[in-house]
C-alpha cells in the first residue's frame, strides 16, 4: 500500500484509539510506524482530530434533556403493556410535557408553598430556551408589544423604568403558568443583550414573599417588583451594574 492509500484509511481512524483492534487499520498503522513521513502526517492528523473533538464536546445538551428522556423510559417500564392506546403514546406524552418544560410555555401543578421557587425555576427555564423563548410577536416596538399583550388579555406591567421605555424590544409572548395568564417582554439593550420582563398576577404567587434585593443564579441577574396587584420579574444575563442602573432609572 502506498502512503496516499494509507492516509485515506487512517483518516477514518478515531483519535482516541477506539479503532485500534479493527483489522482494517492494521496495515496502515504498521506503515505509519515504519515510515517517518507517514508517521508524522498521522500524528498531525490525530492532533487535529483531537482538537476538533475537544472543541465540539463543549456543545452540550441541557442536562434536563437526559432527565426527560430517562423519565420517559421509566414511565414505560413502570406501566404494564397497554392493549390500547399503543405504548409510545405514553412516551409521547412524557416527551411533550418534558419538551414544554425545556423550551416551551410554563407550568405543572406543584405545591403552593414553594410557588416562588417553582415560578423562578420555570421562568428561567423558559427564558433559557435557545435561541430564546418562542416569542409570539417579534417587534422592536414597546407599544406594539403592549398592544399585543393587551389583545391577548395578558397582564401588562403597571410601571416601567424610564430607560426601558426608550429601548427597543425583541418581542413578547403571552402564556399561562399554573392557570394564570402571564406575559413576557424582551428588551434589547444597545449591546445586544436582553432584559426579560415577566408579568403575572400577585395571586399566582400567593403566600410567597418577594425578595427585595437583586438576585443572582446560574448566570442570571434577577429582581422582583410588585405594584398594582402584579408581580414583575426581571431577568437578564447582562452585568449586575448595568441591570441595576436600568431598573433604577
Amino acid at each position: 500500500m502506498n502512503n496516499e492509500t494509507a492516509k485515506v484509511i487512517l483518516s477514518a481512524y478515531r483519535h482516541d484509539g477506539a479503532d485500534a483492534q479493527d483489522p482494517l487499520f492494521t496495515d496502515a498503522l504498521q506503515q505509519a510506524r515504519l515510515d517517518p513521513e507517514l508517521g508524522k502526517w498521522f500524528e498531525e492528523q490525530r492532533a487535529f482530530d483531537h482538537r476538533i473533538f475537544q472543541a465540539v464536546q463543549r456543545i452540550e445538551a441541557p442536562t434536563s434533556l437526559k432527565e426527560v428522556l430517562t423519565a420517559a423510559g421509566q414511565g414505560l417500564k413502570a406501566r404494564p403493556r397497554p392493549r390500547s392506546p399503543v405504548p409510545w403514546l405514553a412516551l409521547a406524552a412524557v416527551l411533550v410535557v418534558g419538551g414544554l418544560l425545556l423550551v416551551g410555555p410554563l407550568g405543572v401543578n406543584r405545591s403552593r408553598n414553594d410557588s416562588l421557587a417553582v415560578f423562578q425555576t420555570d421562568a428561567l427555564a423558559m427564558l433559557s430556551g435557545q435561541p430564546g423563548p418562542k416569542l409570539d410577536l417579534v417587534t422592536p416596538s414597546l407599544p406594539a408589544t403592549q398592544a399585543y399583550i393587551a389583545g391577548k388579555k395578558g397582564p401588562l406591567a403597571p410601571a416601567l423604568p424610564a430607560t426601558l421605555k426608550e429601548m427597543n424590544t425583541a418581542g413578547c409572548l403571552v402564556t399561562e403558568w399554573h392557570h394564570y395568564r402571564i406575559s413576557v417582554t424582551c428588551f434589547l439593550m444597545p449591546d445586544g443583550q436582553l432584559v426579560h420582563l415577566v408579568v403575572l398576577p400577585r395571586d399566582a404567587l400567593a403566600g410567597a414573599s418577594l425578595p427585595g434585593s437583586f438576585q443572582t443564579a446560574d448566570g442570571w441577574r434577577m429582581a422582583y417588583r410588585e405594584r398594582g396587584g402584579m408581580v414583575m420579574f426581571w431577568a437578564t444575563r447582562a452585568p449586575m451594574n448595568e441591570f441595576r442602573t436600568l431598573l433604577q432609572s
Binding site: 465540539v56 456543545i59 434533556l65 423550551v103
Partner: peptide, 30 residues
C-alpha cells in the same frame, strides 16, 4: 443523547430545534 444532540445542533444551529430533533428521534425509537 449527547452525541445525537451535538449532531442535531450541527445540522440546525439552533438549540431548541436540536432538542426537538433529539427527542423526536427517541420517540421514533420507541
Amino acid at each position: 443523547y449527547q452525541p445525537l444532540y451535538r449532531f442535531a445542533y450541527s445540522l440546525t444551529r439552533n438549540e431548541a430545534e436540536a432538542l426537538d430533533l433529539t427527542q423526536q428521534t427517541f420517540l421514533i425509537l420507541t
